[in-house]
């Protein structure tokens, strides 16, 4: 029964928290850029407007793909709140991400096609990091279950600081922030227009936005697992991490996918592996 309540909390909290975070993000970004910025609830208005638009698709596949993406994202967050198995969460989330790319591939637009290829490369870059982080959790707690993480008596951050840094890469990619916003970015100001999202429109783009909120909450939730002993510190940790993300977004140029593959694979996976060896030896 508790699990069911947690699942429902997860399903509701995902979009609400995700949308608020997106709104807050835009506001803080605006402050960094010396602008006024939109209201914090702007993200909700945007999605509401998208849902009100005419349903237009280039390809029937896109309908399926956007629905699978949002359902997978919601399920993975629900599983996370239900304190289920991390590997299961990981695979459900990966299925969603791949379907989003498939929807983009289904359209013939070159922007969407090239964007989809770049998105695949991004998935390829951050998924190994996520897996290694989960292996790290296993080495510390002896289980892949989220509930096991809650039982540790000292913050995981102390044991896996390098892992946290590597997760930062995954977070930046997942949040579509500079320097990793080349497959699509929050502003369509790039050579591929809106990249992987170019051909999604109306309600289906709205669904993808909602799925993005779920994923944001999920990745931030993973970050939260690094400090489970004290809720206050957990919130501070997430707050600082997110603020750092916004800072990075605002002080860096957009890079290319060749650069990303080198950095994330070398540094991200390198940091994780070093941390794993340390955990294994320690």
């Amino acid at each position: 029964m508790d699990t069911l309540i947690l699942v429902i909390i997860g399903l509701v909290a995902g979009p609400v928290l995700g949308g608020l975070i997106a709104g807050l993000d835009r506001r803080v970004t605006a402050w960094f850029q010396s602008r006024q910025g939109p209201p914090i609830t702007q993200a909700f208005y945007d999605v509401a407007k998208l849902f009100g638009k005419e349903k237009m698709v280039v390809n029937q596949w896109q309908i399926l793909c956007s629905w699978v993406y949002v359902i997978a994202a919601a399920t993975s967050l629900a599983l996370f709140f239900a304190q289920s198995d991390l590997l299961l969460i990981f695979f459900v989330q990966a299925v969603g991400a791949v379907f989003m790319v498939m929807g983009a591939m289904a359209a013939k637009s070159p922007y969407s096609q090239v964007g989809a290829q770049r998105e695949l490369l991004q998935v390829l870059a951050y998924e190994p990091v996520l897996i290694l982080v989960f292996v790290g959790f296993y080495l510390v707690t002896g289980s892949f279950s989220v509930s096991a993480v809650w039982q540790v008596d000292q913050p995981l951050l102390a044991k896996m600081p390098l892992m946290y840094l590597a997760l930062g890469y995954a977070l930046t990619i997942k949040l579509r922030k500079s320097p990793f916003d080349f497959s699509t970015s929050h502003h369509g100001h790039q050579e591929l227009v809106k990249g992987v999202l170019t051909e999604y429109s109306g309600p289906y783009l709205g669904l993808i936005e909602v799925a993005h909120w779920y994923e944001t909450v999920l990745v931030l939730g993973l970050c939260a697992l690094f400090w489970t002993t004290n809720v206050a510190w957990m919130i501070v940790l997430i707050g600082c991490t997110y603020l750092l993300e916004i800072l990075v977004d605002n002080t860096m140029a957009r890079m290319t996918w060749r650069w990303m593959l080198k950095r994330v694979w070398l540094l991200g996976i390198g940091l994780s592996v070093v941390n794993l060896i340390w955990l294994y030896a320690g």
Binding site: W31, F32, Q36
Partner: peptide
């Protein structure tokens, strides 16, 4: 910029 008043 964060500490100053917005320019807009």
């Amino acid at each position: 910029n964060l500490l100053k008043k917005p320019a807009t």
